[in-house]
Design a protein around this nucleic acid. Sequence first.
DNA 1: TTATATTTTGTAATCGATTGCACTAAAGTA
DNA 2: TACTTTAGTGCAATCGATTACAAAATATAA
Lengths: 342, 342
Amino acid sequence: MAEKEKVTIYDISEKLGISAATVSRALNNNSKISLKTRELVLKTAAEMNYKQNRLAQALKSGKTNNVGVIVPYINRNFFSSVIRGIEEELSPHGYHVIICQSHEDVQNEIKQVNTLLNTQVDGIFMSVAKTTQDTAHIQKAVAENTPLVFFDRKKNVPGLSSVTIDDYRGGYLATEHLIKQGCKRIAHFSGDLDVEIYKNRHAGYLAAMKDYKVKAIEKFSIQVNSKLESGASAVKNLWSYDEKPDAIFSASDYAALGAIQELRKMKVKIPSEVCVVGFSNEPFTKYMELPITSVDQTPVEMGRNAAKVFLEQIEGSKTLTIEKKVVLAPELYIRDSSNRKL
Amino acid sequence: MAEKEKVTIYDISEKLGISAATVSRALNNNSKISLKTRELVLKTAAEMNYKQNRLAQALKSGKTNNVGVIVPYINRNFFSSVIRGIEEELSPHGYHVIICQSHEDVQNEIKQVNTLLNTQVDGIFMSVAKTTQDTAHIQKAVAENTPLVFFDRKKNVPGLSSVTIDDYRGGYLATEHLIKQGCKRIAHFSGDLDVEIYKNRHAGYLAAMKDYKVKAIEKFSIQVNSKLESGASAVKNLWSYDEKPDAIFSASDYAALGAIQELRKMKVKIPSEVCVVGFSNEPFTKYMELPITSVDQTPVEMGRNAAKVFLEQIEGSKTLTIEKKVVLAPELYIRDSSNRKL
DNA sequence: TTATATTTTGTAATCGATTGCACTAAAGTA
DNA sequence: TACTTTAGTGCAATCGATTACAAAATATAA
């Protein structure tokens, strides 16, 4: 009904008796055009409620002002926070953010990259799926000259930038803190060591142990996944040994929580007998009755930084590929689960 | 460098010595075209690695295959879960999801609606900002014939569909549960009663009280916001009275948690002396040592349903506007904070 | 075999904005 | 006055795909 007819530059040109080219030039505010015509056009355009057709513009220029973000799941606090950062940094520059989920599966990831490239996004942000090994689909972006920025979980692909946190440092900080609490037998719950971030957290743990001359007991390093049960069963496992840990540094907050719950059942006192530190600073960690110490990954900042890297890339000369590796400093939030000085 | 030349239908038509129109028809698989040519074209297209230019297509057809979602903040669990539902339902249909944040501010909301309409999205999903009163910007979508589906927080605009949960029922269920636990003096923490969802939860609370002939004490209804402190101070307030509540139904999980923390400080036993029920089923509620009973809003389902409504709208006849109000049933997750039968 | 119906294909316009090139008119120079 | 600049516009092609209409090719009927 109301079906507003869309106003085009042709409507304006007709109304003013000038060519559409002139209208376009006036609107774009640059070329050589007389002040008089420009003002007339701008005024008329406003009166007629003209709105640029961004599709036509995109077709002509090849620039869509859309970027894509690929994450495993959008409703994980960490990822949605990164996306928030990206959106807030990019939105003032006129970009729209398209979100895609890989469901932690390479096949989906490949599909998503392809459709994003096909819709001609101006850039792609991604945190790769845990299982991603081959990077052919990612290199396609390079081949098509579409900037791609990794965040958190990256792959080493020449020409591509990344924004990550210093997981090694995060692991180091957490472990150092435990050592300073007087802990001597510190266990580590790591994620899949084939995934870079977990490998680095583990390395940070080992480095701190070494620096402070605390013996790292091999069987105290246990691989878990991000589930409560996984942390719980790791604890059962550890407590079956004669020599029991007096601290746990878990690369996952969920596993840390599972561990705490299990320890409670076993009447082990936290933090006096065992200190626990998690990783990610999930919202729940600070709400617990026994708030959990955790390493914060500053996800919103990560998103903002990824966006900035993208903008530099776009605004810089197109031919020159800059490969920028931004590494953010994680922050340790010390809470009751590991604070003996209460 | 590699800068792959994009293959167009003209390249194919040239290679095969036929017209681009024929190629287009073969690709679109519909019109009358000989089987022979179609197969030849499809084969060649595949060989040449042809990819449709979605921009050109969008310009011609006016359909972008993009939809926009406007939420207050994307990194709130509820909203990101709804978005997940929308994405998962729409992605198989070839749609991309663009996300926008209103930051709970009408001015931003207006801006977002406008830029989404300007980029010609095929549809808009939104949960309005708390402060939104005027709906002129929303009616603009109606005027431009762009389907708009509200979820959770809606406005009454003729012609627009919505997917919400039955907040009234949620409030009723929570209150009924408390009554069945034997509670007689049930307090209610409500949100801003100008906001429909909070009004309805409140109404559900009152209705259950009435149905079960439990006296609703006026001063036991307190307006809070979604902050821990707000819940804590509401408790202080309530406990200054001679007659103290023996249950709290909070329309916010955060306020419920704040209340629990305050009650703990006051050495009030939960659930034996006071039962507490929250609303939203935030992830943290189930992780607490004293897990909190809460009303689940089935956000992913809400997103899926909103997407379905949109698809119906799109696929149905364009002229006929269907106004569909989907109301989902909330679910009460009973946990220790209100379960006396432990 | 010729006339007619039916497929199949091509031509050209269209979606809206941008831009190289050409042209006009006004200003500047000798 | 005659000639060169230069500012300001218009023309028309372009970005790629779609589609009404016309034309050609093929099939069917008489």
